[in-house]
Design a protein around this nucleic acid. Structure first.
Lengths: 154, 154
DNA sequence: CTTGCCCTTGACGTCAATGTGAGGTTTTAG
DNA sequence: CTAAAACCTCACATTGACGTCAAGGGCAAG
């Protein structure tokens, strides 16, 4: 299969495939005229590479991991890498969850304009940011609050 | 508080704080001599901004979200943004989970050299990548497998 | 043969959140 | 008063995974 076909089946650009090759992640054969030729299995491989890229692994790391996929072996260094990348991913998931929760709080506040949930009446979920406070010594948090409240529905 | 103090307390660089200001995310007061002065609340705000950055939200999006944090209001557009970013984050978490599972499979294989888990004997978790296959028509997947297996412990 | 599509290499562009350094001012500590 | 530390404004550099354009070669169909 030539590069265009692989690109289509794997859902990436030909530029990406050439980049992967440049990074040593993919080593297609060449026809006498110089055109790249890939085995069927390259589609799966590209999908795996993409999955790793999407997860934020840099190409250099993927390069160290791929032989381990092929052989089923993991040198101590590769093993360490596997473990550290796994924990990096776990940490990233936690960060995402935290941000998602922050968004959820915002959505929640915007969704509940009843008195007990009214932004103007409840404890602020975040400290209000008021640049003018910088000039005062200890601004009272509940002073100068916006007294209006609005419900914006979906 | 001046920029260095905020940077220290929020765990970011002063360069980052100036960048946030440039992007409109932070609007500190200025002393007559031109130095930035932040309220206490800026520390919390910076942490929130960082959380969003870590989650992959671009500054332009954060800029649209912050007023909503302050006022407790969400315009229809802001609401849409909240929802779409939330789903983006959810999708990103799924991608991370998939990559983590791929790593787990690799760790698993490397960890179990017993016959039934031996890479040389079991069904391959991924199709073997063999560039030479490109020249043949339909390579038999189990041909030319590496017969050795190794256990690398943690 | 030629039209047209796919392929090649090479090289510069992009985007975003910073890093870094120059060159100068302000604040603080002694 | 003075020296160090912290601050200021430019403005260019970095990183990584590509996008994009240029200038050409290969190959099947009509």
């Amino acid at each position: 299969m030539r590069i265009g076909e692989i690109a289509h089946q794997a859902g990436v650009s030909t530029r990406a495939l050439r980049y992967y090759e440049e990074q040593g992640l993919l080593t297609p054969e060449r026809t006498p005229s110089g055109q790249r030729t890939y085995p069927e299995s390259a589609v799966e491989r590209v999908r795996l590479i993409q999955q790793f890229f999407t997860a934020g692994l840099p190409s250099r790391t993927i390069l160290q991991l791929l032989p381990c996929v092929d052989t089923g072996h993991a040198s101590p260094k590769a093993f360490e890498l596997l473990a550290s990348e796994r924990s990096r991913i776990t940490a990233a998931m936690a960060d995402l969850a935290a941000a998602r929760d922050a968004l959820d709080r915002m959505i929640d506040i915007a969704n509940h304009p009843t008195p007990e949930h009214c932004p103007a009446l409840r404890e602020p979920a975040w400290a209000p940011y008021n640049p003018a406070d910088a000039t005062r010594t200890a601004p009272h948090p509940t002073a100068a609050r916006d007294a209006s409240a609005t419900l914006i529905t979906m």
